[in-house]
Amino acid sequence: MAKLKLGALIDDKPVKVTVELPAMLHRDLVAYAEVLARQSRRDISDPTKLIAPMLARFIQTDRGFAKARRDQGSQKTDRAEP
């Protein structure tokens, strides 16, 4: 079985956000939840619960974003010094 990028879900205090998904993306999300449920042997009753961990994983692995964030941090540090 293929290893998915998304691992086990953790419980965390959520922030409510409303998002509209294209129908095709929603179907893919449901299919992903089914595969993940089989792999983890845990029921995933609400596929929308995968959106936050997927988004977090995407941000964590985006090298361009990490570089931009580092560059932004170094600019703040440069301005803070006299």
Rank of each mutant, 00 (worst) to 15 (best):
M1C: 03
M1V: 08
A2M: 14
L4A: 12
L6W: 01
L6C: 05
L6V: 15
L6M: 07
A8C: 06
A8Y: 04
L9C: 03
L9Y: 01
L9W: 01
D11P: 00
D12M: 12
D12S: 14
K13Y: 03
P14Q: 15
V15H: 03
K16E: 15
V17A: 11
T18D: 04
T18K: 01
T18A: 07
V19E: 08
V19A: 15
E20Y: 12
E20W: 07
L21P: 02
A23P: 03
L25H: 05
L25M: 12
L25R: 03
H26D: 15
H26C: 08
R27H: 14
R27W: 07
D28H: 15
L29G: 05
L29F: 13
L29Q: 08
L29T: 10
V30Q: 13
V30Y: 07
V30G: 04
Y32H: 06
Y32E: 06
A33C: 13
A33F: 08
A33P: 03
E34N: 11
L36M: 15
A37R: 01
R38P: 00
Q39P: 00
S40H: 06
S40L: 14
R42Y: 10
I44K: 00
S45N: 12
P47Q: 13
K49I: 15
K49N: 08
K49Y: 05
L50D: 02
I51R: 02
I51N: 04
I51F: 08
A52K: 07
P53L: 09
M54F: 10
L55P: 01
L55S: 10
A56W: 04
A56K: 06
A56V: 13
A56Y: 04
F58M: 10
F58R: 09
F58E: 10
F58A: 09
I59P: 00
Q60V: 07
Q60G: 02
Q60N: 14
Q60H: 09
T61D: 13
T61L: 13
D62C: 12
D62I: 07
R63H: 11
G64D: 15
G64S: 11
G64M: 09
F65S: 01
F65Y: 15
K67I: 12
K67H: 03
A68I: 02
R69E: 14
R70E: 13
D71A: 11
D71S: 10
Q72T: 08
Q72N: 11
G73V: 07
G73L: 10
S74H: 04
Q75F: 11
T77C: 01
T77L: 13
T77V: 09
T77F: 06
T77K: 05
E81V: 04
